[in-house]
Design a protein around this nucleic acid. Structure first.
Lengths: 284, 284
DNA sequence: AAGTGGTCTAGACCACCAT
DNA sequence: TGGTGGTCTAGACCACTTA
């Protein structure tokens, strides 16, 4: 039961010449009338039109977009203009292009999580540079799952009212058999109706993948603020450090379409042998 | 005395119809022969040609590029291809476009420093959201300047040999009158010949601006790794925290053309009232 | 008014992928 | 072999800046 039932037009059955995995989305794309001087550029309007398609769920994760010529024709813009719009969506990891295959709605999985959302990696050893430490997907162990009422800061981050029902999940993340991160996840219970410990623990892929497949919510971006704190007794036990030891605390708000906050995640990191690596590192 | 003396062709005097602030760079741009199948795309080759121009110093910080039509003609590519190359360089903050004025080699200044390299800002107050905390440029006070020999980790980060001569600079950075960051800067003495405490302290703009104007070295990118540590006595005194208090330590290697490391900077941050904000936050 | 970058078009051809 | 995205072209017109 997702929110998509309220979308204005339902999916139509594929027409005889439509590809099976491609809903006939072109019918939903109305020609864009260029509004003339000083207005939003046409390619931005095209981008918005595509975003509306994704946001409304008419085009879901993993689905194939119509080919560029078709979309361009449906919107009555040139293919170059369409490409510029898609370029930006690809750059934001919202769409994925594959030459020879097509353009797809981005899906959450391990690769994307590692690339876009996981920023912890082993500290390179100055004295042993032979060891090329590959980035490693963490083993996630669930420590707890509970419903509760939003605190001030939780409500602020998730744009809820204080006291609204939230779900809290505690996880430990391990790299190389060693627990390195403690995660406290907070989400709105209203937004994630039906989410329970069992579903959470048995998810086949990443947590953001679960949000996407079970609740139709696609995380597209995140904000992170980091600080150093003294380890609490609870976290110290999980991370295997002494109480009061300096650990890093990262507050992340995951965001979906329309700048709506989805999840607050407080990661406490044991940085004895690992670093928090800023996205600044990526080249392009 | 910069390294540019070794560049193959010297700057020519501007021709009678050239703009005064624009060296006749088009003469230096040789037509690009498309190398055919499976090769590097033409627009990447154009990008490389432009990068060589910047790297060799034939086009310096703040200078105006010839207009797009001229460059395209000189390289014998279409204007669209040239624009795609420039697009990427603009995205990497190496060039700056200004509609109606021209395209310029990016210069270091406060705005760029704040945007690209400074990641500390006040922690927003959950209980007093009226206060919109604007990002503020820090007041930098010099605490020390000394020559020395590269340690293992310094040599590793700067790609020097252990024992090579380095310059070390200590600064304190204050926001709102409060010291928030202690910076230890390490650079190769050979790379920054003639850099002394006086020049350093009297610089008119940012430190990266000094590197650019005095030594012809343009920082174009940085790598950062962060961790939580216990404050040392030296740093504790500067930051006004007790020895052993948890503080954040950010190791940044600033990089110039050709992936060459320029500067190692270890920032120790008092995160009592401030956060380290990840670049992930930016939208586009 | 002249010069610059910004947008938009219409088409050709290439490289990659599936069949 | 046919379909997809990727590259490249040549030009028209618009918006912004400066003189």
């Amino acid at each position: 039961m997702t929110d998509f039932a309220s979308s204005p037009s339902r999916k139509k059955a594929p027409r005889f010449n439509a590809r099976l995995d491609t809903p006939d989305v072109t019918q939903l794309l109305k020609p864009i009338a260029d509004s003339g001087a000083g207005a939003v550029p046409l390619y931005r309007q095209v981008k918005s039109a595509l975003l509306r398609l994704l946001e409304s769920g008419q085009l879901g994760p993993g689905e194939t977009l119509p080919n560029e010529a078709q979309i361009a024709k449906a919107l009555q813009v040139s293919i170059g203009t369409l490409r510029k719009a898609v370029d930006e969506l690809v750059h934001e990891h919202i769409l994925v292009r594959r030459q020879g295959k097509g353009t797809f709605v981005a899906m959450h999985g391990q690769e994307r999580f590692m690339f876009q959302f996981f920023h912890v990696e082993p500290r390179p050893d100055v004295f042993d540079q032979r060891v090329v430490t590959e980035r490693e997907f963490p083993v996630v162990d669930n420590l707890g799952f509970a419903a509760g009422r939003a605190t001030d800061s939780e409500a602020y981050a998730l744009r809820l009212r204080v006291g609204d029902e939230v779900l809290r999940v505690d996880n430990s993340l391990s790299l190389g058999g060693q627990c390195v991160v403690h995660d406290r996840i907070v989400v709105s219970a209203a937004m994630f109706k039906g989410l329970n410990a069992k579903r959470f623990q048995e998810r086949p892929s990443t947590i953001y993948n679960l949000y996407q497949t079970d609740h139709g919510i696609s995380v597209i971006r995140a904000q992170e603020r980091a600080r150093a704190v003294a380890a609490s007794s609870e976290v110290a036990k999980v991370l295997g450090v002494r109480v009061g030891a300096p650990v890093m605390e990262v507050h992340r708000v995951a965001i979906t379409f329309g700048e709506r906050p989805v999840e607050l995640r407080i990661s406490t990191i044991n940085t004895q042998a690992h670093d928090y690596v800023s996205l600044i590192n990526r080249r392009s």
